[in-house]
Design a protein around this nucleic acid. Structure first.
Length: 701
DNA sequence: AGTAAAAGGTTTTTT
DNA sequence: ACCTTTTACT
């Protein structure tokens, strides 16, 4: 794997902390900070000091006597919430400033449901499933209910989970979701219904909630008899990135507000990039209708980027898609004079692009821009593969955000499943992972064990049954079973809080068992065991196993690669990130890779106006991350080896979103491809294959 | 009944 | 190129 690391403070250089809430605000920002007559919507363009405004507003509220623990600040990522709260704490003289409630919708939902869920019929120790757990659970239900055999081409678990979450989070009708987003599954509508029902039942029986459930239950309790209790929790609710909320989240916001709650939402419809998660800018457009007496304040002065960069970005986002433009039309202007024109670089192929980018990153560093002030952005996680090789080869340290998470690797899930069993013995998915990895246990034996232990049929605690010796198997797995029982027993302890092992100690206690099963399951078990040790180190920061599990699910380490990270990483490093993960961040020099048609816009979005508009905004988001320099590149020649052996190349074209705005760029590189296809025969050399074959034949004749 | 080998399917972004 | 599902073998 490539060098990378987990460091929570990899935020790019941020503005200095304001010394008091109102220092250095322009008039629009000041109005937003001071507004206190009814709901407020702040339409804040990229780089217009949105974070500063929110932080200042929270500070002002506290200074004027609002109770910090009655302020709720909902953000898109955990990272931005901790950054903002940190700024509030640093700038406030009020000791209690740290008590402001901050977090994502999902993490706040979790917190509230732990507190109020029991009164609403939720099990006290519910487990939260991440997206891949949900897929696995669909897979389990799909097989058990025999849906796989109904027809040859029944959708895969992954697809089913996708349909489900789309259905739930958009609150649309199944037929519509299938027609619009999954037309190839339309024939299976009738089979999906009972499958969804079985999935829901299973979740309830196993005391697990998926991501969507967290929001659904939160919304549901605001509408229940507990509603007034929730509405009385907060005097102020502030929401960041409102353009990326979905209909359920908007309902939640409404449900949390009483007549006296002060509501403030911040967003930019030009930066909405989570439509695939059912987020809708309609939440911004409808804000004034939904929240009576609402005021809208627009922030248009950009403090981040130089004029040439902003002009190019404005030209990009101004392009209408399907005749439509952003609803809150606004033109950002920069207060930063000078600056260089963004570069548009045509590269011969992907290798040339990697080389060009690394050359220029190093050149920027020579000119005084630290690696930590530079970032390389791209549409899809794998777009940086070639660049990562080149960076490694040339010893440039980097950290990659987005893409596959370490948490998703099979062996980490194995260990987490053990912890989950301890946490919630009804969790059949966790049992499944553990039981099926035992030697000699296949589907049939697992079914028997599940029945004998009563997993998922809330009669008796299956863990207690298991530990007291129920659920025997044949001798093949004797050693593994013995070790499993003994390790789990030690982790359970005598049930008292004081005597139980810490989460880190539990991981270490479970390690020998993992060693036994990894040896069979994986061919690189040594490396995988080392990961567990790293996880144990991470676990030392927790004193509660439940909290650790839920935090890892709701806020997984966002860095791709290792947990602890290599120790030899210099203190200066480059950021690689998907555009989505770069949201809200900024760097002095930003590189954007693979700006070719088919990547941006992604060819999957082509033909769909909403999808195309989102791709356009994605490009806009990427460009507006740059403060001083912006370099957009794309390779002319792409290798196509989509599904296997086919090794040809294809000529790419510049993104259709960049092409019409090319006057705003300094164009570098060949416009015309040097078409050299190595597979084209040069002259004829007949008889070579025959000669080799006859030589081979002579060896055994 | 389990396991190993072969076939088949696959689109990107993430709480 | 990779991961899941199906099939064939022990």
């Amino acid at each position: 794997m490539f060098e990378s690391t987990v460091i929570d403070a990899v935020l790019p250089a941020s503005e200095p902390v304001p010394s008091a809430s109102l220092d250095g605000l322009n008039s629009a920002q000041r109005a937003a900070v001071h507004h206190d007559t009814g709901p407020l919507l702040i339409v804040a363009g990229a780089g217009t000091g949105k974070t500063k405004t929110l932080v200042s507003r929270v500070l002002r509220l506290i200074e004027e006597g609002a109770e910090p623990n009655r302020i709720l600040l909902l953000t898109f990522t955990r990272r931005s919430s901790s950054e903002m709260l940190q700024r509030v704490r640093a700038a406030s003289s009020n000791r209690a400033a740290g008590q402001v409630w901050g977090g994502t919708f999902h993490s706040v939902a979790n917190r509230l449901l732990r507190q109020f869920g029991a009164s609403a019929g939720l099990p006290p120790n519910f487990t939260v499933l991440d997206a891949s757990d949900a897929t696995d659970l669909f897979g389990m239900v799909r097989t058990e209910e025999g849906f796989g055999e109904r027809s040859k081409r029944f959708p895969r678990a992954n697809t089913i989970a996708g349909i489900y979450t789309r259905l739930v989070s958009s609150q649309a009708k199944l037929a519509d979701v299938l027609e619009v987003d999954f037309p190839w599954c339309a024939d299976h509508a009738e089979d999906l219904k009972p499958l969804f029902e079985a999935y829901t039942k299973r979740k309830r029986a196993n005391a697990v909630l998926d991501y969507d459930d967290l929001l659904l239950f939160w919304r549901a309790i605001t509408k229940s008899s507990l509603g007034p209790v929730l509405q009385d929790l907060f005097d102020h609710i502030l929401i960041d990135e409102y353009q990326d909320t979905n209909p359920i989240q908007a309902d939640i916001v409404e449900g949390m507000c009483s007549a006296t709650t002060q509501l403030c939402a911040v967003g930019d419809d030009a930066q909405a990039i989570y439509g695939f998660r059912s987020a809708t800018v309609a939440n911004m457009w409808n804000f004034a209708e939904r929240f009576e007496g609402a005021t809208t304040i627009t922030l248009e002065q950009n403090y981040r980027s130089t004029s040439p960069i902003l002009r190019a970005a404005n030209a990009v986002i101004a392009q209408p898609i399907g005749g439509k433009k952003p609803h809150f039309s606004k033109e950002l202007w920069s207060s930063i004079p000078g600056g260089s024109v963004p570069r548009l670089v045509t590269c011969h192929d992907e290798t040339a692009q990697s080389a060009w980018v690394v050359d220029n990153i190093l050149d920027s560093r020579e000119r005084g821009i630290d690696l930590r002030d530079q970032a390389v952005l791209f549409r899809a996680g794998h777009h940086s593969n070639g660049l990562e090789l080149e960076l490694t080869r040339r010893d440039v340290p980097f950290v990659k955000y987005g893409g596959l998470k370490h948490l998703e690797s099979a062996h980490v899930k194995d260990l987490l499943s053990l912890l989950r069993i301890l946490d919630n013995p009804a969790d059949q998915l966790a049992w499944h992972r553990v039981l099926s990895s035992l030697e000699g246990v296949g589907p049939a034996t697992e079914r028997r064990l599940v029945a004998e232990l009563g997993i998922g049929s809330d009669a008796v605690d299956p863990l207690r049954r298991f530990l007291s010796g129920e659920g025997q198997v044949s001798s093949a797995a004797d050693q593994q079973f013995t070790e499993l029982r003994s390790a789990l027993t030690d982790c359970v302890g005598d049930g008292s809080e004081s005597a139980s092992l810490s989460p880190a100690a539990q991981i270490n206690r479970l390690r020998p068992f993992c060693e036994l099963i990894f040896a069979n399951k994986y061919d690189n078990s040594v490396a995988r065991l080392a990961d567990l040790d790293a996880l144990a180190t991470t676990a030392e920061t927790y004193n509660s196993r439940s909290r650790m599990l839920v935090e890892l699910t709701l806020d997984p380490p966002s860095v791709t690669g290792d947990w602890a990270g290599p120790p030899h990483l210099d203190d200066d490093w480059l950021t690689l990130s998907t555009i989505h993960s770069a949201k809200g961040l900024e760097w002095r020099h930003v590189f954007l890779l693979h700006a070719a048609d088919g990547n941006i816009p992604s060819d999957m979005a082509i033909g769909d106006n909403d999808g195309m508009a989102e791709e356009l905004r994605l490009l806009y988001v990427a460009m507006t991350r740059a403060k001083e320099e912006l370099s957009i590149s794309f390779p002319l020649r792409y290798h196509v080896n989509r599904f296997g052996s086919d090794d040809r190349h294809v000529y790419a074209q510049l993104s259709r979103f960049v092409e019409p705005t090319v006057e705003h760029f300094h164009v570098i590189g060949d416009k015309i491809a040097e078409a050299i296809d190595l597979r084209t025969p040069v002259g004829a050399a007949t008889g070579v294959a025959e000669q080799v074959d006859s030589m081979l034949a002579s060896l055994w004749d």
